[in-house]
Amino acid sequence: MAVTRKGVRWIAQVFSAGLLAATLSGQPAGAKPKEGVQDLDPGQKGVVDGVGIASRDIASMADIAIRDLLSRGDIVNRPVPPRIVVDSEFFRNQSSQRIDRDMITDALRVQLNRAAAGRLRFLSRESMLAVGRERELKDQGITDSGTMGRRRISGADYQFVGKITSLDSRNPKSGTYQRRTQIIFELVDLETDDVVWTGEPYIILRASDEDIVNQ
């Protein structure tokens, strides 16, 4: 019978003290999983990892984009704050990672709204259905005009747009796989189509070794 190097290695393992001990105890070496629910810092590396966008990236990319945008005096220091739409409609995912785009655009809008402190105004096009329904009730006289009277729906000056793209590769020999993910945010003038601001691309390059039992 032909014996391969792996076979010899297994024989050696059989007679090694470690494996005999493992046999007796029935417990192989390795870290035991922690039990129960753990509270984690969303800005730090989680306990479950992959090669794509992780929790900490969402906080980090939003923070970088906001700092960059708020440093642009020509946009944020106008006498009349410009109106911006930040939603997922024009935030495209062309990557190989399934993701709820609202998670990114919501984080961006909320943090930007808080940090801008009135220097930017945000419009919710997602709420147009609710706005339209209420205006119809007011138009029909079913309800009164509210405490602030009738006003026009605000027009937007800018739309936040963005794109997620990725490049996957795998080393067939080692089983290591790698993904480069790139996230880009831009601000588009809704009158002229000019791109008035482009954030620095947020790039994630992660590699991972899958255990050979799953290769």
């Binding site: 192989p28 390795g30 992959g50 255990d211 799953n214």
Partner: peptide, 19 residues
């Protein structure tokens, strides 16, 4: 499927000659 397994007890056992 996307979860990266590292130091997984069951994976270690699968490689053991006894399991």
């Amino acid at each position: 499927i996307e979860q990266v397994y590292a130091q997984n007890t069951q994976a270690e056992q699968a490689k053991s000659v006894w399991k």
